[in-house]
Structure formats: C-alpha cells, structure tokens
Design a protein around this nucleic acid. Structure first.
Lengths: 157, 157
DNA sequence: TCACGGATTGAATAAAAATGCAATAGATTT
DNA sequence: AAATCTATTGCATTTTTATTCAATCCGTGA
C-alpha cells in the first residue's frame, strides 16, 4: 500500500507527458491518446487521474480550452520536477558513500532528470538504470543531506 | 435587462473577489452568489466569464474541486494581478509600521490575494477586511519599500 | 432621432466531466 | 492458502460546463 499501483503511476506519467507535449481539449481525447499508448482506460478513470494529478483545464489566449499542469503553491518551490519524483520514486537510501534511489520500473531516467534539475550543490554525478539511480556526492557526510532533501520532497502533499 | 459593458467588468471583478475569498465548486454556485450580490446572471454567462478570466477548476489537497485564479501565465502574473490591483485599489499609505491599502467596497479580498501572490520578501503577513488591507512587513524601513512597490504597480498604464 | 453592427445574454441543449455502484485486482493478515 | 481488506476500474448515470441560436442591448454615425 506504500508503493501503490504501478500501472496507475505509469499512466499518470504518461498523462503528464501527453499534456505537456500537445494541446488536449477533453478527457475523451486524452483517453484515446492513452489507448494508443497502450493504456486501456475510460473517461471515468481519466477524470479520476486528473483530480489526483490536480490538472486544470483553462482557456489559452485564443479562448481554446486545454489541460495543463497546475502550479500550486506547493509545487512552486520545486516545480513539476518534484512532482515527477513523487510519482516515480519508490525508495531512497544511503548506501556507503552513495545515495541509491529506486523508482518504478522504467522510470529511473525521468526521475534522474528531475534530480539533475535540482542542481544541488553537493551532488557531483548521477547514473540511471531502469529502476535505479546512483547519486554521487562530494563529501561522505553529504549523503545524509541528500537523502533528507529527497525525502522532504517526496513527503509533500 | 439593465446589463451593459461596465456591468460585465464589475461582474468580473466580483467573480475574482468571490473565488479568492471562498471555495466555490460549481458555476451554479457562483451564479447564485453573484445573484445575491446583485448580478443577475445565468450559468451560461458565468461559463463565458470563466473562459475570459482564464479561471481554472482544480482539486485541492482533499480532492475537492474549486475555482481558482489561473497561474498558468506565471510570467505575466505581475501584469495579471497588477491589473486586479489597479482595478480595485483606491489608496496605499504608510501607517506607523504597517502599510494600509484601501480598496473599493468589497474588493479587499481580491486585492489582498493579488498582493499575496506577489510574494514580496519583506511582506510577512496580510489581513483583508471589506475595503481595507493591512500589510505587515519585516522591518520598519520595509514599509516605505512596499508602498513604493505598490504605487509603482498602480501607476502603470 | 433612427438605423446599423457588434457585444452580451438567456433559454435550451449538446458536450464534457464527475460519481455511485458493483466487480475485481492486489495487498495484508492469519 | 484462505480470508479479509483496500484500491482501482468500467459502466451507467448524474451533474456540470460549453455552445448554439435568437433576442436584446449599446454605442456609433448618418
């Protein structure tokens, strides 16, 4: 129950990818695109996903509606990257002088990009596999700080 | 029907005030509140107003939907909130160690929300009544800076 | 003043989104 | 493994929102 449903998380990520790469006007359109991408879902599920992801539909400058990632106060400090981490990271632990992050299958690269984007001063390098990320830090004592920083992001609403 | 162009602008401002001072779930609820406030409108008009104001409906932390002022135009947000301030603020003055802002009647909440969105570092707190806002700042000398910042926004074209 | 033209609006309706319910998939405990 | 939860989902339906169409309003220029 801590980890949740993997398929659902993958679908959520796909939804974020879809709405940030193209204009989507309706939930039906979105579920059709998800179906093409291999996610068999109905509009009802998309509606629930949208509530959980706190997506918004609003008019653009031409008055055309489209779904967008909302920028709530919470997200503002870390942007949508923190959001991606919360959606993909399963665990985050100290391992000797490295930080080892586990993600849901296939999501390590997305999560790693998010971590890189943070530009934390103590982080000197990252490597992403399929579901694992290694984070190298400057000093051994930085490991603890990075783990704490990550957990802080992961625990936000 | 005594509705006109100016009435529409006033209604738009009233909508901004309403959604920034309370949680509103549906357009029907909003049109009911507008009716109470003296604006006789149907849901159809509210739908159009919402498109024009680029408002969004999204879930809060509890999954309850409510209408909010869009932050999708974060680059232009100063302009957007500045617009609200210019439309509502009557005066802005230093009062001891506070900044006191007077607005047209009933608009303090909308204006206060706009000020809050500026996220000025010197501002530590705000309180809005019906037509008055108190702004608390960190240091006494910050009062002057905030008054100047506000006046700068108010004097823009 | 009167006629014209664009804007605004309400009523009705179409379109889109949210939800109650039941089935089932997954996890947890015994 | 069986029993028991909890979470997820689709279907059907309700609720909510957007739009169409016609009427009315407002400003403008003759």
């Amino acid at each position: 129950m801590e980890q949740g449903n993997i398929v659902k998380k993958r679908r959520h990520m796909k939804i974020l990818e879809l709405i940030s790469s193209q204009d989507i006007e309706t939930q039906d359109d979105l579920s059709e695109l998800l179906r093409i991408a291999g996610f068999e879902v109905t509009q009802a599920t998309v509606s629930r996903d949208i509530r959980e992801l706190k997506l918004t539909k609003s008019a653009d400058e031409n008055g055309i509606y489209k779904y967008t990632i909302s920028q709530s106060e919470d997200d503002k400090s870390i942007g949508k990257y923190g959001f991606i981490l919360r959606e993909t990271v399963v665990s985050c632990e100290k391992a000797h002088s490295l930080v080892v992050v586990k993600t849901i299958s296939g999501m390590a690269n997305a999560a790693c990009a998010a971590i890189d984007h943070m530009q934390w001063p103590h982080v000197v390098g990252t490597i992403a596999g399929d579901d694992t990320i290694f984070i190298a830090v400057k000093e051994p004592e930085d490991v603890k700080n990075v783990v704490e920083a990550l957990n802080s992001i992961l625990s936000r609403a």
